[in-house]
Simulated scan of single mutants.
Amino acid sequence: MSTVITNPPELQSTFVDSANMPWQPTEFEGIEMKLLYKDDHGRSTILFKMAPGAVVPLHEHTDLEQTYMLEGSLEDDEGKCTANTFVWRPGGNKHIARSPNGAVFISIFNRPNKFMDGAKFFTSDE
C-alpha cells in the first residue's frame, strides 16, 4: 500500500519538456538557450548551446553561478570545463567564456550576470 501525497497547486512540481522546447537565440552570435526556470528574484536555470568559436563577452557573476557541461567545452583564463565536469563561480568573478569546439551545458544563476559592454543578461528585465 502506498501513500498518495497531494500538494496544493502552488506547491506542486513543474515538469519542463526541454527536449521539445525550441532553441531561442541570444544577442550573442552562436549562442542559443532554453530557459528552463526563471523567478522574480533573478534566479534562473538555462540550457545553453554554443556553436564552435562562440564567445560570451566579458561579464561579472553577480552571485553564485553553477555550470554542468553536457557536451563540448567551455574555456576561460582560469581553466577548461569539459563534458561531464562541473564548475562554479562565486559572485564577483569576471571572465570571458569561449567555446572553441562548441558546447551544450546547463547553468544555474542566483542573479543575472552584468556584462561590461552594457548588454543585458539573458534573463534580465532591466
Rank of each mutant, 00 (worst) to 15 (best):
S2H: 13
V4P: 05
I5L: 14
T6A: 07
T6D: 05
T6N: 09
T6V: 08
N7D: 07
P9Q: 04
P9T: 08
E10Y: 10
E10C: 03
E10D: 14
Q12K: 15
S13K: 06
F15I: 15
F15E: 14
N20R: 13
M21G: 07
P22M: 09
W23P: 06
W23H: 07
Q24S: 12
P25G: 08
E27C: 03
E27I: 11
F28V: 05
E29H: 05
G30N: 04
E32K: 02
M33F: 12
M33T: 05
K34I: 03
K34N: 05
K34Y: 05
L35R: 10
K38G: 11
K38S: 12
D39Y: 02
H41T: 10
R43V: 02
I46G: 06
L47V: 02
F48S: 08
F48H: 06
K49A: 01
A51G: 01
A54V: 04
V55P: 04
V56K: 03
V56Y: 04
P57C: 11
L58E: 14
L58D: 11
L58Y: 11
H59Y: 07
H59D: 04
H59C: 08
H61P: 09
H61N: 14
D63Y: 11
L64E: 15
E65P: 01
E65I: 10
Q66N: 08
T67S: 14
L70I: 08
L70N: 06
L70Y: 05
G72R: 00
G72F: 02
G72D: 00
G72K: 00
G72H: 01
L74N: 03
E75P: 03
E75I: 03
E78F: 12
K80A: 05
C81V: 12
C81W: 01
C81G: 03
A83R: 00
A83Y: 00
A83F: 00
N84R: 09
F86Q: 13
F86E: 13
W88F: 10
W88A: 09
R89L: 12
G92A: 07
G92M: 09
G92Y: 13
K94C: 15
H95T: 08
H95E: 14
I96C: 08
I96R: 12
A97K: 02
A97W: 03
A97P: 00
S99K: 01
S99Q: 03
G102K: 00
G102L: 00
A103I: 01
A103Q: 01
F105C: 02
F105K: 00
I106Y: 02
S107D: 05
I108C: 14
F109Y: 08
F109D: 00
N110A: 07
N110Y: 12
R111Y: 05
P112T: 12
N113T: 04
K114V: 02
M116V: 10
M116P: 01
D117E: 04
D117P: 09
G118N: 07
G118T: 08
